[in-house]
Simulated scan of single mutants.
Amino acid sequence: MQKKMIKKIRKRDTKGLDYVINNYSKKVYYLVDKIIGFYGREEVEECVSDVFYELWENIDQFDEKRGEFSSFIYMKTKYKALDYKRRLEKKEVHKTELEDDITNKITTEHIVLDKESSEEIIEIINNFKEPDKTYFYNRYFMYYKVDDIAVMYKTTRASVENRLYRCRLKIKEMLEGRK
């Protein structure tokens, strides 16, 4: 039955794909859920769909001499789910960085906008010691990413973040002290 089903898929007969979905979807779903279930049901279902679509599109990659069809499906599933996981992790990291960045900018910009003159801010920044002044300038005026600043100055991301945090605190303290 399995050989007939593979032939049907190769001939683009959807009955072959229906057979595969009916017989393998539970295990495919289970494997995908184990790998990316943390990201939500919607992501899992999308990945499962992509597994079967890829199977449909790349059925010619299956070689009976190299192994069982079930192994072929499960390997496709594993690699597709891992691709999804990498993409979702990258998306999460970017989202978190963006949220942190927006929060920091809003707080800093709020202080800047609340004050009568930005000259006070520039004076405070100009009094920062190096490399704080350079880091702050690159981050908030040139809009460099923290990772890029760390690479440029051969330091760690944590070091840059800590220095920027202390700079923002100094600005806030000095501006609040002048009220």
Rank of each mutant, 00 (worst) to 15 (best):
S117W: 05
K105R: 10
F128Q: 01
I6P: 02
L169I: 15
K26D: 08
I36S: 01
Y135K: 01
F128P: 02
T108Y: 08
F141I: 04
V146I: 08
I6T: 00
Y24I: 03
Y143H: 15
Y137L: 13
Y24P: 03
H110R: 13
F72G: 06
K27D: 14
T77C: 02
Y79M: 11
I36H: 02
K90N: 15
L98C: 07
L82D: 03
K154I: 00
T134K: 09
K65H: 12
M142V: 14
K95I: 10
S49V: 09
E46T: 07
E120D: 15
V151K: 13
R87Q: 10
K34Q: 10
Y137W: 11
E54D: 15
F38L: 07
L55F: 06
Q61E: 14
L88Q: 05
Y153E: 03
K133H: 02
L55W: 05
G16W: 04
K76D: 07
T77F: 01
L82T: 05
I125V: 09
I124Y: 02
L88R: 10
Y143R: 11
L169Y: 09
K179H: 08
E130G: 03
Y24A: 04
N23C: 09
K154H: 04
Y165A: 12
E109K: 03
M174Q: 15
E109C: 02
D114F: 11
E176C: 05
A150K: 00
E97L: 10
F141A: 01
I35W: 02
K172Y: 09
I6Q: 03
E176M: 13
K7D: 14
K172D: 05
M75A: 11
R139V: 00
T96P: 04
F62L: 05
K154F: 02
V146H: 00
V151I: 12
L169M: 14
K15A: 14
I59S: 01
Q61T: 14
F62Y: 15
K78N: 05
F128V: 01
E42H: 04
I36N: 00
V112W: 08
E173D: 15
Y144C: 08
D13F: 03
I149K: 00
S70R: 12
T156E: 05
Q2E: 13
R12F: 12
K90C: 13
R10F: 01
E45L: 08
H94K: 15
M142P: 05
N104I: 07
K78V: 04
Y135R: 00
V44S: 01
A158M: 12
K145R: 03
E68G: 14
K27N: 14
E43Q: 12
A150L: 00
Y135I: 00
N104W: 10
K34T: 07
K80A: 04
L175W: 04
K133W: 01
S71L: 11
F72M: 13
D114V: 09
R178D: 09
Y74D: 08
E123D: 10
Y143L: 11
T14M: 14
E68Y: 15
I111Q: 04
Y79E: 10
E99T: 08
